[in-house]
């Protein structure tokens, strides 16, 4: 069974009496350990797809299964718990809370999962070490650079050991050098066995992932899987990598 199973999912919006199909009958599987890119121009529905996959929203039609849970039937409370336990988000604008320190930002998901203060501190430090920012723990987000902020956001996404990490244009707000470093970090995380879904409009960025799904007008226009073509030597079987987790307490 795949980690995420999407079956005939549609998402409709009503704007002034007009029906807009943001997603139209999309089906797709994501296995554990995969590194996948969802690409498409703006307005194509890729963000809507990410919101559905990330349990921020529920589909209008179709079924969506994440790690065996039926998302379309879940209540808002259950969706919150799933986002907290199984999903990590990295956003284009970092979305760190400016009033909290770097470490407090990383601790935030663990506060909502009810971990003790000591465990929160240990795990947040471990996550910051993983992204190379353990010496910035006491800084405020405004006192560090954009690339560092995005690393903090990645540490926050990692800290609860989620099943999958969604990154929405993670390099969109960074210069190309820092952007490359962030992408390299994602690649490294992928090598360590994390499941990562990268959402972007830029084919160059999407090129770092072995598997790419192209969305156009709410439909899957094209799907490229380098592994199937035998071109990507670095990809490993998902099962072997899934267990490795650097932030495991």
């Amino acid at each position: 069974m795949a980690l995420i199973e999407v079956r005939n999912v549609s998402k409709l919006y009503h704007l002034g009496g007009e029906e807009i199909r943001a997603l139209d009958d999309v089906s797709l599987d994501i296995d554990a350990g995969e590194f996948i890119a969802i690409i498409g121009p703006s307005g194509s529905g890729k963000s809507t797809l990410m919101h559905l996959l990330g349990c921020l929203d529920s589909p209008s039609k179709g079924t969506l299964r994440l790690d065996g849970t039926m998302i379309e039937k879940a209540t808002a409370h259950q969706l919150s718990r799933i986002r907290n336990q199984k999903i990590g988000f990295v956003f284009q604008f970092f979305n760190l809370l400016p009033k909290l320190t770097v470490q407090q930002n990383v601790e935030l998901p663990m506060i909502y999962s009810g971990l003790s203060g000591r465990e929160r501190r240990e795990r947040s430090l471990a996550a910051l070490k993983l992204v190379g920012l353990e010496n910035r723990a006491g800084h405020r987000p405004m006192q560090i650079s954009g690339g560092q902020q995005q690393r903090v956001a990645i540490a926050r996404a990692l800290v609860n050991n989620p099943k999958i990490i969604f990154a929405d244009e993670p390099t969109g707000n960074l210069d190309s050098n820092t952007g490359d470093a962030i992408l390299e970090l994602f690649r490294q995380l992928s090598r360590e066995g994390r499941t990562i879904a990268l959402v972007t409009h830029d084919p160059e960025i999407a090129a770092v992932t072995p598997r790419r799904i192209e969305i156009r007008d709410g439909k899957i226009a094209r799907e490229v899987d380098a592994r199937l073509a035998g071109l990507d030597r670095s990809s490993r079987a998902p099962q072997t990598a899934a267990a490795a987790s650097p932030v495991q307490p």
Binding site: S80, R81, Y112, N160
Partner: peptide, 11 residues
């Protein structure tokens, strides 16, 4: 942001 990383209605 808080909701995205798992804050519930009650939180």
């Amino acid at each position: 942001i808080r909701k995205a990383i798992g804050a519930t209605f009650t939180d």
